[in-house]
Every structure is written in C-alpha cells, then in structure tokens.
Amino acid sequence: RERTTFTRSQLEELEALFAKTQYPDVYAREEVALKINLPESRVQVWFKNRRAKCRQ
C-alpha cells in the first residue's frame, strides 16, 4: 500500500474533528471518511498517529 497523502481540505476536516474529540466513534469516523473521500481505516490510523503526535 502506498503512503496516503492528505490534501489540505482533508486535513482541515480531520483536525476539526480532532479538536472536538480525540477518540471519535466508528460513526463519526465513517461520516468524515465519506465526506473527505477516504476509507474509514485511513481515518482511524490518522487519529491514532495524531494522538501519538499530541503525546510527544
């Protein structure tokens, strides 16, 4: 699998949801995934990595 490159608009959507909740449920992830045209699994991994970045 190729590394996913997020567009600015995708990142804005993801960061907006992250500001609301660092642990979105599957419904919130699927909703944003549809909105930004990415698989839910990519959204899930983005949140995992974003939380790790936050802890550093």
Rank of each mutant, 00 (worst) to 15 (best):
R3L: 13
L34Y: 07
L11K: 10
T21D: 08
A19H: 05
E13Q: 08
S41M: 12
E12H: 08
Y27K: 15
S9F: 10
L14Q: 01
P39Q: 06
D25A: 06
R51F: 01
Q10S: 04
R50G: 01
T21A: 07
R55Y: 07
P39W: 01
R51V: 05
E2S: 05
Y27N: 14
E12D: 15
Q10V: 03
Q10D: 04
V26G: 10
N37G: 14
R50M: 11
Y27P: 14
R8E: 13
I36L: 10
C54E: 15
C54N: 12
E40Q: 13
L38N: 03
N49V: 06
Q22W: 11
R51G: 02
K48G: 07
A52Q: 07
A28L: 10
R50V: 01
E2M: 13
S41T: 12
F6T: 07
Q44E: 11
V45K: 05
Q56G: 10
N37Y: 03
E15Y: 02
V45W: 15
Y23V: 07
T5C: 15
V43R: 00
A52T: 12
P24N: 02
K48Q: 09
K53N: 07
I36A: 11
K53A: 10
P24D: 01
K20R: 11
F6I: 06
E40P: 11
Q10W: 02
F6Y: 15
T21F: 06
L17F: 04
R42M: 15
K53W: 05
L38H: 10
F6K: 04
F47G: 01
T4V: 13
A19M: 08
S41I: 08
F6R: 04
Q56Y: 05
L11S: 06
T21S: 07
R51S: 04
L38K: 05
Q10A: 07
C54D: 15
S41W: 10
E2K: 09
R51D: 02
C54V: 13
K35E: 01
S9Q: 15
L17V: 07
W46E: 00
Q22Y: 04
Q22N: 11
R55G: 14
D25Y: 00
T21L: 03
V43P: 00
R29G: 01
L11T: 10
D25F: 02
A52D: 15
R8I: 08
E40N: 05
K53Q: 08
E15Q: 03
E13V: 12
R51Q: 08
L17Q: 04
Q22R: 13
E12A: 13
D25V: 00
R42W: 11
R50H: 06
W46D: 00
D25G: 09
T7A: 08
A19P: 02
R3H: 11
F47L: 07
Y27D: 15
E2T: 07
A33C: 05
E31M: 14
E31P: 00
R1V: 05
R1E: 05
R1H: 15
N37S: 12
F6C: 07
K48Y: 09
S9G: 10
S9W: 06
L17G: 01
P39M: 04
E15N: 07
I36V: 07
A19K: 08
L14H: 00
T4W: 03
K53V: 12
A19Y: 06
Q10H: 04
K48A: 13
R55D: 09
K20D: 03
L14R: 01
K53P: 08
L11I: 15
P24S: 00
A16E: 08
N49P: 00
L17C: 06
C54Q: 14
L17K: 04
T5I: 11
F47N: 00
L34H: 12
A16F: 07
C54Y: 13
E40I: 08
L14C: 02
R51T: 03
R29W: 02
T21Y: 04
T5L: 05
E31T: 14
E15P: 00
